[in-house]
Design a protein around this nucleic acid. Structure first.
Lengths: 153, 153
DNA sequence: TATTGTTATACTCTATAACTATA
DNA sequence: TATAGTTATAGAGTATAACAATA
């Protein structure tokens, strides 16, 4: 007997049976690939996923405050501070005193932020189309819905 | 007109239409919740997702080397070093000279590693059952398969 | 008393470049 | 020349505790 035959010049296959059976592992790997391609898609725009999310939320919720913004994105208030500082330094968002609460700030996307988000959005759609090319429209909707049910508490 | 009526003592709903339409965002949020609950499930075992994956791979692929291990998990060789050092310090994995290549090491899960992985695996299944309770068996299989298609290149 | 925003800090994950010893 | 493992380092994500100003 010559033992197990492997294809010439390939190493023995690596097993990962347990991991492949876990949804959590599949989620991690899929998210990792998605994030890497997101960064490629943004290229010189210098927009990471978090920043894209912040700009999108600022556009859709003009005047939102930091606590509410953080809660809706799952980002802690403390971690939001440097993220928003960077966006303000780049003049992508603006901050004004909140009218009814002198502790809080009202956040707004700027003109430049709107323009950048518009281009980023265009690229995100190309990016998602590229990564999800193996999924039909119905499958994408199914996936979105299943992911939502995992997120919900 | 009194304006839009909100439920008493709740803040106005936050919109996130764009983000909710993106699979990438759904993946990030679902992974985030999954990871947090994974950590809770492991409790005092002190096992993070990466370490769980390393132990599982070492168990299923006795004698695997670091490069091959890293490639199959999507971890760079350089980042693997401190991770494996920690597992070796805790006597969860062992390293021996690779028989056919004096540059390489052969990795093996230890007795203690096997015992710990066994308990971790038990908890992981409880954890996945808890998070995926809203998904039927067919839906879980569908999700696994869709995630695999996203991971593939 | 509770909440908003902030600072400081510590861990972890990820990416890159450069080195050594072997192949 | 290429590969296995290592070191060093830097950027980014995430978590906690504590504080000042205001509610």
């Amino acid at each position: 007997m010559s033992g197990i035959a492997y294809p010439v010049s390939e190493e023995p296959e690596v097993r990962s049976g347990l991991l492949e059976s876990l949804i959590g592992y599949g989620l991690r790997r899929a998210t990792s690939r998605m994030t890497a391609d997101f960064m490629t898609a943004m290229g010189e725009l210098g927009i990471r996923p978090v920043q894209f999310a912040l700009l999108a939320m600022a556009r859709e919720n003009p005047g939102i405050n930091q606590t509410s913004l953080g809660r809706s994105l799952g980002i802690q208030r403390a971690n939001l501070v440097p993220l928003l500082n960077e966006l303000r330094l780049r003049d992508l968002i603006e901050r004004r005193p909140a009218p009814a609460d002198r502790r809080a700030f009202a956040l707004y996307i700027s003109e430049a932020g709107n323009a950048l988000l518009h281009e980023a959005e265009r690229r995100v759609h190309i990016h998602e189309e590229r990564i999800l090319s193996r999924l039909g429209a119905g499958e994408r909707e199914t996936l979105r819905e299943l992911l939502d049910r995992i997120r919900a508490d």
